[in-house]
């Protein structure tokens, strides 16, 4: 209390026609202007501290060095061969050389564009990851200020998506009011993310259905394997697009790794809630036809992957909304089969 900075500022009244008043409205009130003293909400010692993500061990990564050096070497090789090619072309004929040079220029430009898109995709994915971490922390601490930042980030993420216009408008109204941190996130979830969740659930169910049917009728195991791989990748891609990730190729590979890692964690949990259902369903279906049984298994697998992808792609953890389970998704897959069994 003795520190002058801690001493409460004295109350004061101001006329409204004075030019000193800079902002109005609750949404702007919490922002300082950098120069003045800002009111920074910090939780007290007794308030819950946000669960800091476990620091990842910083180890020297040989794999990264290997791939880095390898790609550098490949790039050098390509450069060298291109250089040789252009020289050869010039040696043969001047116009041929110029044409080759122009093609190389176009190649460079397109490579740069692809690179930019990849980077943008990776940044978008990282932003979504960050949003999810921040949202979880804001829910845990019920901190209004960080919740507001998260919701503003969420609105910015969906700014160029016309189908979210209504949700964004609703959220904008909430932002203008005084609402607690967790409550604000619950509102944002129900206004912005619930419609997307519904679409996501349908996407997963559709993919699972397709995989089941194709597996059941395909003549060769290799074909279903290929089809499952393609369908799963397409599903992850679609879900990422739906939640605003739009990853490029590299981002997509990272996302795949994420999903698989997540699947490894949640797979065990999911097994407990629906293993019985799976086994029984599979058993009956397999008795009817072994191909049909395989179809069910593949469909379940696809649904699992899809749900894991939802968890990874959604810019917010499930707060108040119900996290979809395999049952919810699979219910739509085999309505006829369910009726038969």
């Amino acid at each position: 209390m003795t520190d002058p900075k801690d001493r409460p500022r004295r109350p004061a009244a101001f006329r409204l026609d004075d030019a000193e008043i800079v902002t109005g409205g609750a949404d702007t009130a919490s922002r300082g202007d950098g120069r003045g003293t800002r009111v920074i909400l910090e939780s007290d010692d007794d308030a819950a501290v946000p669960a800091a993500p476990l620091p990842r061990k910083k180890r020297f990564r040989w794999g990264r060095l290997f791939w880095g050096t390898l790609s550098a070497l490949v790039a050098m090789a390509i450069g060298l061969s291109l250089d040789a090619l252009i020289r050869d072309l010039f040696a043969r004929n001047d116009w041929l050389g110029w044409a080759g040079l122009a093609l190389v220029g176009l190649l460079t430009v397109s490579a740069l564009a692809i690179l930019g898109r990849e980077l943008a995709g990776i940044f978008r994915l990282e932003r979504i990851d960050q949003l999810r971490v921040d949202a979880a922390a804001a829910v845990a601490t019920d901190d209004a200020k960080s919740a507001r930042t998260v919701v503003e980030g969420l609105v910015a993420l969906y700014r160029d998506r016309p189908e979210t216009a209504r949700g964004r408008a609703d959220v904008a109204v909430h932002l203008g009011e005084i609402i607690d941190g967790r409550d604000l996130l619950v509102l944002a979830e129900s206004d912005l993310l619930l419609p997307l969740d519904r679409t996501a659930r349908r996407l997963v169910a559709d993919a699972a259905k397709k995989v089941s049917v194709v597996t059941a009728v395909s003549p060769r195991a290799v074909i279903d394997l290929l089809f499952v791989a393609v369908a799963v990748m397409g599903l992850i891609r679609k879900l990422a697009d739906l939640y605003g990730g739009r990853p490029g190729l590299i981002g997509f590979i990272g996302l795949m790794r994420h999903v698989i890692a997540h699947l490894a964690v949640t797979g065990g949990m999911a097994a407990t809630d629906s293993l019985l259902h799976d086994v029984v369903g599979h058993g009956i279906a397999a008795r009817l036809s072994s191909r049909l049984g395989e179809g069910v298994i593949n469909g379940l697998l696809t649904a699992r992957v899809g749900l894991a992808a939802i968890d990874v792609c959604r810019p917010m953890p499930f707060i108040n909304a119900e996290r979809p389970g395999v049952q919810d998704v699979m219910r739509g897959v085999f309505p006829e089969a369910e009726r038969k069994t």
Binding site: F14, E20, I21, V22, G32
Partner: peptide
């Protein structure tokens, strides 16, 4: 009331209007 920021001197005060 509504809320507003008022800048006085070097500091900006969170006010109600």
């Amino acid at each position: 009331t509504r809320e507003a920021q008022v800048r006085r001197g070097g500091e900006s005060l969170p006010c109600i209007v």
